[in-house]
Each structure stands twice: as C-alpha cells, then as structure tokens.
C-alpha cells in the first residue's frame, strides 16, 4: 500500500510544482492572452461541466473511440495477413510505405470531398492516422514468432484458429500493444484536428470557437481539458495493458529460482 502511495506521490510531484509555479507567476497577470490560472480554473466548471459535456466532449470521445477501435481491428487484421504471408507482404509493402508517409491532416480536404463534413469524415481522419502504428507493429510482431514455439505447434498439430490465437496473436501482442499506445496519442491529436475543419461540435471545435470569440480563459481551459483527457486515457490504457500483457512483464523480470 505504501508503495502505491509513494508511486502516486512521485508521479504527482512535478505536475504539482509546475501548476504552483504557473499559479503564482500568472497571479497578477493583466496580459489578455495569458490570464491568471485562477481565472482559467474559475471558468472551467461553467465551461465544461455544463451542456458542453454532452454537446462537445462526448461527440469527440465517441468519434475517437470508433475511429481508434476500427483502426485497431483493421490494423491487427491486416498486420496478421501481411506479417504471415510473404507474397502479401511483397505486394503491399511499397504501397503501405507510401500511404503511411502521408500526414493524415492533409487527407482532411480529400476526405471532406468523399465523406462530407459529418462524423464519418472525422472518424476516417482518426482511422487514417491510427492505422499505421498498429499495422506496422503487428507485422513486426507476427514475424518475430519464435521458431521453436512454431515447431511446437506443428508437432502437436495445433492448427487453424487455435494456432492464430495461441501462437501468432499472443506472440505479437507486446508489439500490438506498443502500436496501440502510439496510435492512441496520434488519435487524440487527429480527433482535435478533424474538429477544426468544418465542424459543429467537439473539443477542437469548441477551443477554436473560444479563440475566435476572444474568450481566452475558456480557450485555455479547453487546452487543459484535452491534456487531462490524454492523461486519463493513458491511465486506462495502462490498466488494460497490465491485464493483457501480465505474462510479458512477468517473464521479462526473469525467472525466479526455487
């Protein structure tokens, strides 16, 4: 228990110091663009814990969730196909190199032409960025399947779906999780960017609106909210990772002598 408290203490120490510095340094600020932190905090509840929660925060998170989920499923499925088949890999890899080099934000105008300015476009922008880290890491993970373990499956005639799950996917899972972690931060960025074009709701939209309306404290509070959401999502990610990769972290700590 004291170990957990100590870890929480270490994790919070620097943020607390920085917030305190910000708080006192900005306390008497009269600069219009850099209002005191106390004012930003004061407008926070009214700004976000009101109708905006349902109008802006939830739509953003829903689009992120759908886009991220689609990218995960598609990335893993494509990664398994490409990683386990040399012909598929040889045919698709040059194309993938080209596609992943395109920065997703430049796809926004094209996606608007194809999918309109609604939720579909925003979800597609998120998918177009989140897909690559998942896909490329899955390919690497599948190729790194241990040959001894693969031979074990062959001799014991473990085949089909069982082989895919117990050998290929589980072997690749540390890499898949790495890709998923990178994709999550990309996804949050793209969530905001997609809402800065032709949007009528969302966190990115709200922040831009505040900026255009010179409601600077509210704008700052939106930036802080995005930061907090990022932290929350990464904590959730860690909890899931801990469950999925418990064996991996355990085995990397080395075998215990008994």
């Amino acid at each position: 228990m004291s170990g957990i408290l100590a870890r929480v203490g270490y994790a919070l120490a620097l943020p607390v110091v920085l917030v305190a510095v910000w708080w006192f340094a900005s306390a008497g600020s009269t600069d219009f663009y850099f209002p005191p932190l106390s004012r930003i905090v004061a407008v926070f509840p009214d700004t976000w814990l009101s109708s905006r929660l349902a109008d802006d925060v939830l739509p953003s998170l829903t689009r992120l969730g759908i886009g991220y989920g689609v990218a995960l499923l598609a990335g893993v499925a494509l990664g398994l196909a490409i990683g386990s088949n040399r012909v598929v890999a040889a045919v698709t890899e040059p194309l993938l190199e080209f596609l992943r080099a395109i920065p997703p934000p430049v796809l926004v105008p094209i996606l608007i032409l194809v999918a309109g300015i609604g939720d579909t476009m925003k979800v597609l922008v998120i998918v177009s960025g989140c897909l690559w880290p998942v896909l490329l890491n899955t390919v690497d993970g599948v190729r790194a399947v241990d040959p001894v373990l693969a031979d074990t499956c062959r001799t014991y005639r473990v085949r089909g779906g069982r082989r895919w799950w117990h050998l290929v996917i589980r072997s690749a899972s540390p890499r898949i999780v790495t890709g998923a972690r990178q994709a999550l931060s990309v996804g949050i960025i793209l969530m905001v960017i997609s809402e800065m074009f032709a949007a009528s709701s969302g966190l990115g939209y709200a922040v831009i609106q505040f900026k255009d309306g010179f409601r600077i404290p509210q704008m700052w509070s939106g930036v802080i909210l995005l930061g907090l959401l990022g932290v929350l999502l990464s904590v959730l990610f860690r909890i899931v990772e801990h469950r999925v990769l418990g064996w991996y972290h355990g085995s990397r700590d080395g075998p215990r002598e008994r």
């Binding site: 241990d146 001894v148 373990l149 031979d151 074990t152 001799t155 014991y156 005639r157 117990h166 050998l167 589980r170 899972s173 064996w247 991996y248 085995s251």
Partner: peptide, 18 residues
C-alpha cells in the same frame, strides 16, 4: 499423429502466456 517432441530450448517451447 501420435508423435511428440521435447525440444532443448524448454524456455522457448512453452507458451509464456499460458
């Protein structure tokens, strides 16, 4: 069928996630 192998690399022939 009906043939089993025990490999030298025991650490790599067991599924660490099982």
């Amino acid at each position: 069928e009906g043939l089993a192998v025990v490999f030298q690399e025991y650490g790599r022939s067991l599924f660490p996630w099982l």
